[in-house]
Simulated assay, not measured.
Amino acid sequence: MPLTITSPAFRDGEVIPFRHTRDGENLSPPLEWRDAPPETKSYVLIVEDPDAPSGTFRQWAVYNIPAGETGLREGASTQGLLGAGEGVNGFRNARYDGPQPPKWHGPHHYHFRLSALDVPQLEISASAKVEEIWTRAQPHIIAEAEVVGVYER
């Protein structure tokens, strides 16, 4: 079976609960994954909004997630990530910042993209932006999965 990612907070293509948005409690949603390839040595997760008016907006990146992990608990960004790092998002924060699209802009689709990597760590500076993390991960991706949540204001 291929790598899959889901969230107990919302189904693929459905609305992201208010508590997981910047308008709400800004808590990262719980995520679960399974069926990673046996050669997986770590994971990287990014969250991005391709519907942003100025182009793709990146909400979060988590890298160097240990291969033994099978998910992230709700609020993981504020509770510590067990050695994993977080990239600098479009709001200029090294943490999860949930959906907050412009008012009256219609529904935005937030892609939670998980990649299994063939290396135990990406050597990345603490000030790296989400885009840089994703670029550095590209040559090491052995499997990918995504779940998409929707939010509008």
Results as ranks from 00 to 15, higher is better:
127 S>C: 00
16 I>F: 06
53 P>G: 02
24 G>C: 05
13 G>V: 07
39 E>D: 12
73 R>P: 06
64 N>K: 08
35 D>K: 13
17 P>H: 13
113 R>S: 10
75 G>W: 09
121 Q>L: 12
50 P>L: 07
90 G>L: 06
86 E>N: 09
61 A>T: 01
149 G>P: 00
28 S>R: 13
90 G>A: 07
53 P>L: 05
72 L>E: 04
91 F>D: 14
75 G>T: 06
8 P>N: 04
58 R>G: 00
33 W>C: 09
145 A>Q: 08
63 Y>G: 01
146 E>I: 08
27 L>Y: 11
87 G>E: 02
112 F>R: 09
129 K>N: 05
126 A>K: 09
105 H>K: 05
29 P>S: 10
101 P>H: 06
6 T>A: 12
25 E>R: 12
31 L>S: 06
136 R>Y: 02
131 E>G: 02
120 P>W: 04
79 Q>C: 13
104 W>T: 11
83 G>I: 15
39 E>S: 14
33 W>I: 14
22 R>W: 09
102 P>V: 09
29 P>G: 11
111 H>S: 08
71 G>N: 11
138 Q>A: 13
32 E>L: 15
132 E>T: 12
75 G>A: 12
43 Y>M: 03
69 E>G: 01
35 D>H: 15
109 H>F: 02
104 W>P: 03
149 G>T: 08
109 H>K: 14
123 E>N: 13
82 L>S: 11
91 F>V: 11
102 P>C: 08
66 P>E: 01
120 P>Q: 07
56 T>W: 08
43 Y>Q: 03
132 E>G: 00
40 T>L: 07
57 F>G: 00
16 I>L: 14
65 I>T: 00
117 L>S: 01
151 Y>H: 12
39 E>M: 13
33 W>G: 08
21 T>S: 04
22 R>P: 05
31 L>I: 11
22 R>N: 09
48 E>K: 15
107 P>W: 11
58 R>S: 09
133 I>L: 04
118 D>M: 02
143 A>G: 03
146 E>R: 15
63 Y>V: 03
150 V>R: 02
109 H>D: 01
127 S>E: 12
149 G>E: 09
89 N>Y: 13
134 W>F: 06
27 L>W: 12
88 V>Y: 14
120 P>L: 06
134 W>T: 01
80 G>M: 09
49 D>E: 14
145 A>N: 10
3 L>V: 13
31 L>R: 10
4 T>W: 08
107 P>V: 01
126 A>G: 14
91 F>T: 10
74 E>P: 04
145 A>P: 14
37 P>M: 10
47 V>W: 09
4 T>Y: 11
6 T>M: 04
